[in-house]
C-alpha cells in the first residue's frame, strides 16, 4: 500500500474505513471512505422510491429521515446518523452488541425495524456521555477493567444502564440476569459483572 499523509482532522473511524479499503484495492484513502459498493448503490437507487418518512428521536435530538421499511434501527443509527458506537455483530438479535434503549428499555437495535422507533425515544451509547465526561457506568468499566477487545462493550453498557434504571441497587444475581442477553467472546464476564456492581455502588 502507498503511504499517504492523513490529515489530522480525519476521525479515527474515517481513517479505519479508508485503511480497510486501501489494503484491498489501494484506492485513494479519502475517496473510498464515502463510496458505496456498486451493489449497494443499485439497491439504494431502487429503494429510493419506496422510502417512508420517519421522525426518529435519538439521544434527545429529533431527526427527520426517510427510510426504506426493511432497514433496521441499528442500520439507520449507524449509517444515516453516523452514531457508530452501536455495534452490529450477529445481526440476528442474539448477541446484544447492538443494544440500545427504547423508551428506557433495552432492545436489540439490529432486530427491530427503524420504522418501529417512530414516536419513541432512543438512547445509544453516545447519549450516555455528558460532553467529554464519561458516564458512571463507563467509568466503572474502566476502573474494573470490564473490557478486553471492547467490541461488545457499548451493548454491555446499554444493557447495564437499562438494568440500573429499573433496579438501581441490584444484587449480583440481578446483574447476571440483567446482563444475560449480551455475549462477550473474550469472556470478560466476571469483570463486566464487577463493573456493573461498581457502577451501582457509585451511581
Amino acid at each position: 500500500m502507498k503511504k499517504k499523509s492523513v490529515s489530522s482532522s480525519l476521525s479515527r473511524r474515517q481513517f479505519l474505513k479508508g485503511f480497510g479499503s486501501g489494503v484491498a484495492g489501494s484506492v485513494a484513502l479519502n475517496k473510498i471512505a464515502s463510496a458505496l459498493p456498486l451493489q449497494k448503490t443499485l439497491e439504494k437507487a431502487a429503494n429510493d422510491a419506496n422510502r417512508t418518512p420517519l421522525n426518529l428521536s435519538v439521544n434527545g435530538k429529533t431527526y427527520r429521515l426517510s427510510v426504506e421499511p426493511n432497514r433496521t434501527l441499528a442500520e439507520v443509527i449507524r449509517e444515516d446518523l453516523q452514531l457508530t458506537g452501536t455495534k452490529v455483530v450477529c445481526n440476528h438479535g442474539e448477541c446484544g452488541a447492538c443494544t440500545v434503549l427504547l423508551d428506557g428499555e433495552a432492545v436489540y437495535s439490529c432486530h427491530i425495524l427503524a420504522l418501529d422507533a417512530e414516536g419513541k425515544s432512543v438512547t445509544t451509547i453516545e447519549g450516555l456521555l455528558g460532553g467529554e465526561e464519561l458516564h458512571p457506568l463507563q467509568k466503572a468499566f474502566v476502573k474494573k477493567d470490564g473490557i478486553q477487545c471492547g467490541f461488545c462493550t457499548p451493548g454491555q453498557i446499554m444493557a447495564a444502564q437499562a438494568l440500573l434504571l429499573k433496579n438501581p441497587r441490584p444484587a449480583k444475581e440481578d446483574v447476571l440476569e440483567g446482563m444475560s442477553g449480551n455475549l462477550c467472546r473474550c469472556g470478560a464476564y466476571p469483570k463486566i459483572i464487577e463493573s456493573v456492581l461498581e457502577a451501582a455502588k457509585t451511581d
Binding site: G93, G96, A106, V107, Y108, A159, G178, S180, G181
Partner: peptide
Amino acid sequence: TASPQLRNM
C-alpha cells in the same frame, strides 16, 4: 423465555 432484550421486544 429468551433474553431481557427479547422479552422487551
